[in-house]
């Protein structure tokens, strides 16, 4: 078993908490993992990505080769397109539909979504609205992770446990909101 995931977004959107959740879940299942992150200059509103590799065998490279990613998870619709060269022909993608506009020449949203839909196995979700309905506008990233959960070779319960561990310090209320977001994402996605 191997599962190579690219996490994409804009600096400050919280892709690292998605990564941390999958990471904790993988540790619980005793899997090998490597997770390469971006720190530094790009975190100031630039494009950021994390290569996340899960396997039941030892993983060598911290980076995923081109054309080998099983999944792209993106919290921003244009950003998902930036990493298509990494996606394998059988791979899938899950992305938020809500653009993060911090550049003057941001393309038309519909044109972006048209490009996303050209990928055979793609799922677009309005994570911001779902999170807002749940009363936790900052949990959009957990909605997206939930929507992507069926593609990730980990039991859903392990992701839930990971959320409990990751947000436990912030209190029961925050844990519950994030769990709700995770489940809402899963329920919104096709099985």
């Amino acid at each position: 078993m191997k599962c190579d995931i690219i996490l994409a977004g804009v600096g400050g959107q919280g892709i690292l908490s998605i990564a941390a959740t999958i990471g904790l879940a993988a540790v619980e299942k005793n899997l090998f993992l490597k997770q390469s992150e971006v720190h530094g200059m790009s975190q100031r509103g630039g494009d950021v990505q994390s290569h996340f590799r899960l396997s039941d065998r030892e993983i060598h490279s911290d980076l995923i080769p081109y054309g080998k990613a099983d999944l792209i998870i993106s919290v921003e619709p244009m950003e998902v397109l930036r990493y298509l060269p990494w996606l394998s022909p059988e791979g899938g993608l899950v992305t938020n539909s809500v653009p993060y506009v911090n550049i003057p020449d941001y393309p038309d949203k519909d044109e972006i979504l048209k490009e996303v839909r050209k990928v055979h196995n793609s799922f677009i979700i309005d994570a911001d609205s779902i999170a807002k309905e749940l009363g936790s506008s900052r949990s959009g990233n957990m909605v997206i992770l939930g929507a992507a959960s069926s593609y990730i070779a980990l039991p859903f319960e392990s992701l839930e446990n990971a959320v409990r561990k990751l947000f436990g310090r912030k209190g029961e209320e925050v844990v519950e909101l994030n769990l709700k977001a995770l489940r809402a994402g899963r329920d919104a996605a096709p099985r």
């Binding site: 600096g11 630039g46 080998k68 298509l84 060269p85 394998s88 550049i103 020449d105 972006i112 490009e115």
Partner: peptide, 20 residues
């Protein structure tokens, strides 16, 4: 041989870092 995935669509723009 390396297998590249799809090319990045033309409409994707650079997103340099910026002031918060």
């Amino acid at each position: 041989k390396t297998a590249m995935g799809k090319e990045v669509p033309m409409l994707v723009k650079q997103r340099p870092p910026s002031f918060c």
